[in-house]
Amino acid sequence: MSTSSDSVPVVRARGVTKRFGEFEAVRGVDFAIAPGESFGFLGPNGAGKTSTMRMVSAVSTPTSGSLTIFGLDPAIHGPEIRGRLGVVPQEDTFDLDLSLRLNLEMFGRYYDLPRTTIRERTTELLEFAHLSDRAEDKVDNLSGGMKRRLTIARALINRPELLILDEPTTGLDPQARHLLWERLYRLKRDGVTLIITTHYMDEAEQLCDRLVVMDHGRIVAEGAPRQLIADHASREVLELRLGSEHHDEVADQLGSFAERLEVLPDRVLLYVDSADDTLARLHQAGWRPERTLQRRSSLEDVFLRLTGRTLEE
């Protein structure tokens, strides 16, 4: 699909900021995305992800810093850049009164594609989105998961080299999410560069080769998912529910059992090498937690470590 060599990034940002009046949504971010890579932006609501996505989609322009997409300046080559990328926005936006097929066909026209090409691709994409039998239905009658797949199909009508997905699976049930992920793997396999924002850790771990963690408009960490976990969290986590209102007080006493510890409103997390061993030692010391949970560290823990907050709050 893309013939450019790996040395030319699809997107390169240097010191990019975005300001809305007094509010600085993005405060100087640097990143480069290689062709064929799938790249994640992780962060809670209000971290600056969506503002960054809109700049990378060549829809809004940076307040300062330099941004190139396909090596081009979006301020000058906006239409040309947008002609080569596809965007899956956070919210599905369709013409509710038109059929699925007409929605896709109309969208193709915005790219100045010839009508015969549009018709072929529409049929193909409806197949891809598993929606062929609903082609003549109104979009209004689709379920959430179907609409999401249709949005992705629509974003592919121009055969984009870069696909930008803003929270692609928010609000979907697990089955619908897995179907969507499967479609995204296929695109990745075909060499499409993917940019994904999400606040689901499992999604980021599943889909992204590399990701950045954003908080308050800044990038606070960057790397492959496993690498980030290795760098910023221990191997395993032991979660304790103590059945006491006074987590803060017990935290001091638990400190010696773990490399690090986080106190959440409903539980205490102990970052340890082996959750089994730690639990045994706790029992020996006379601790009787109400419930315990042993698990491997995840990006959630990385995020907690870096920002002091959970992602879903």
Binding site: P79, R82, T93, Y110, R154, A155
Partner: peptide
């Protein structure tokens, strides 16, 4: 309401 323009702006249209 429907934000249909937002999706159009993702295309070469200005």
């Amino acid at each position: 309401i429907s934000h249909a323009y937002d999706s159009i702006l993702a295309t070469p249209l200005d």
